[in-house]
């Protein structure tokens, strides 16, 4: 389970919304980190795609946060970022020097699938109907996101047989 210390049988709708916000925040920040890595390693296509994904994750985060504030105003949260471990955020190990756009999209697809698996695993534990409804909605969104990524993947030409890693620059100095 990529979360710790969260009891899904008793989680409130407020904390479930906060968890969803934090999941999006974690994913956004990770995509930005990956984009920075790509920038440093002169891989602009993958960098651009990761920044696009970061914007998308942030959009979802803001939407969820607005819902949270509408329902629960500024009530303190019962969950923290420290309780999450890469729920929707792509693993650091996904990144590679000179990633192709296809590889970057495949990374995003695996992350969306990972998030779907998380919501799917948690759902049977949920008792509160409001929380169940929210998680069902979030799980369905992950399916939609996967479809969007697959559609973009289908537009790309296949990668060549060239192994870009074999021609990667060594780590570079920093200003």
């Amino acid at each position: 389970m990529p979360t710790k210390g969260i009891d899904y049988r008793t989680i409130s709708l407020r904390d479930a919304l906060d968890l969803a916000v934090l999941i999006e925040e974690e994913a956004k920040e990770r995509y930005l980190e990956l984009a920075d890595q790509m920038e440093l390693h002169h891989t602009p296509d993958a960098e651009g795609f990761f920044r696009f994904m970061a914007d998308n994750e942030d959009k979802h985060r803001v939407e969820l946060l607005e819902r949270r504030h509408k329902l629960f105003d500024h009530q303190p949260s019962g969950v923290t970022r420290e309780q999450l471990f890469d729920v929707e955020a792509p693993d650091y190990s996904e990144a590679r020097v000179f990633m192709t756009p296809r590889e970057a999209l495949e990374t995003a697809l695996r992350s969306e699938t990972k998030a779907w698996t998380f919501f799917d695993k948690v759902l049977p534990q949920l008792v509160d109907l409001g929380v169940r409804g929210l998680f069902e909605e979030l799980r369905a969104e992950e399916v939609h996101h996967q479809e969007l990524v697959r559609r973009e993947l289908a537009k790309l030409p296949p990668d060549d047989a060239f192994c870009h890693e074999d021609f990667a620059d060594e780590p570079v100095g920093q200003d």
Binding site: L34, D36, Q37, M38, L40, H41, T80, R81, E82, Y92, S93, E94, A95, R96, V97, M99, A168, P171, V172, G173, Q174
Partner: peptide
């Protein structure tokens, strides 16, 4: 304190995918 409080502004230059 949160994890972010310990993260500096310096961006790591490790190879992408580094443990």
């Amino acid at each position: 304190l949160t994890a972010k409080d310990f993260k500096s502004d310096l961006k790591p230059i490790w190879c992408p995918g580094c443990g």
